[in-house]
Amino acid sequence: MTFKRWFHVGLVVFAVGEIAGPHLFRADHAHFWFEDIPAWGSIYGLVSCLLIIIGSKLLGKLWLTRPENYYDS
């Protein structure tokens, strides 16, 4: 229970820190336009994670996975 709570607190801290950070401290220039979206890292992290899991599982189920003894002849 406490782990979950601490985890959510951490998420909030990271997200807020990401949004507020460049304004509070002297920020270096961004390379791309999307880096200026608030909480860009957090959003992209969540999106990437979901994309990878769902995409790979789909790829696996449709094409790539085989039972364990597939290569044993």
Binding site: F7, G10, L11, F14, A15, G17, E18, G21, P22, E35, A39, W40, G41, S42, I43, Y44, G45, L46, S48, C49
Partner: peptide, 12 residues
């Protein structure tokens, strides 16, 4: 901050 956000929300 971007890295921490990326990692944290990946964990989510």
């Amino acid at each position: 901050t971007a890295t921490l956000g990326l990692l944290g929300f990946t964990a989510l």
